[in-house]
Design a protein around this nucleic acid. Structure first.
Lengths: 112, 112
DNA sequence: CAGGATCCACACGGATACTG
DNA sequence: CAGTATCCGTGTGGATCCTG
């Protein structure tokens, strides 16, 4: 437990948010939701419109930030699996809340 | 209640996520958290590093998407207040979950 | 005070081709 | 299969100046 002023809290949030920035990161995470394990080609197929470059790049960043883990099976043809780390799993409630939010849209939009 | 296949669910998520994309949107929302009401200049001061252009632009988009509402007081000098709409308020649990997630970082990062 | 308008740079992201 | 490498366009966002 470190000291926690409103100021450091705000900058902390911004740093955390940066980890999730990027057009595809949250979408990727949604596909790893719930302990799901996906291969590179799975994600490529599941996420329509993403390029290999972007998929690889965003996965690298998520990995570097400790949110997803990468497992390489040394075989031919190569097989690589992605899953959430413990910390990544901890994001699930937030992702879930986002889904819930999306579902509330129609019923709340009129209420101004 | 519309028909809901996994496919439309996925694209629905993506559409929702697009509403939150943009370097400053979530940061702005954090400052309107909890029913807080902020003036343009307040946000400008609270969010260090943001330019007027970006602040205005992202607020316009959030407004157009029905997430924040804008209240203009016809007076000189002008006074404009921003707050979350009902739907925007519904995002709070998700934002809260994100904060919680950030706080778990240190304790979970080692667990692979 | 709350922005609109304008100019500009770079990073982000797309398409394609190639590789271990 | 799971990526890199390269080239390239565009959008995002920054800085500055101006206005009701």
């Amino acid at each position: 437990m470190t000291t926690y002023t409103p100021d450091t809290a705000a900058s902390g949030v911004e740093n955390i948010l940066k980890l999730l920035e990027g057009r595809w990161k949250l979408i990727i995470l949604f596909h790893l939701f719930d302990g799901k394990v996906q291969r590179f080609s799975d994600l490529e197929r599941l996420i329509s419109g993403i390029s290999q470059k972007m998929l690889a790049q965003q996965l690298r960043q998520l990995e570097a930030d400790g949110i997803v883990s990468r497992t390489v099976y040394p075989q031919v043809p190569p097989k690589v699996e992605y899953r959430l780390t413990a910390w990544g799993q901890a994001l699930c409630p937030a992702l879930d809340a986002l889904l819930k939010w999306a579902e509330q849209r129609d019923s709340l939009l009129g209420c101004s």
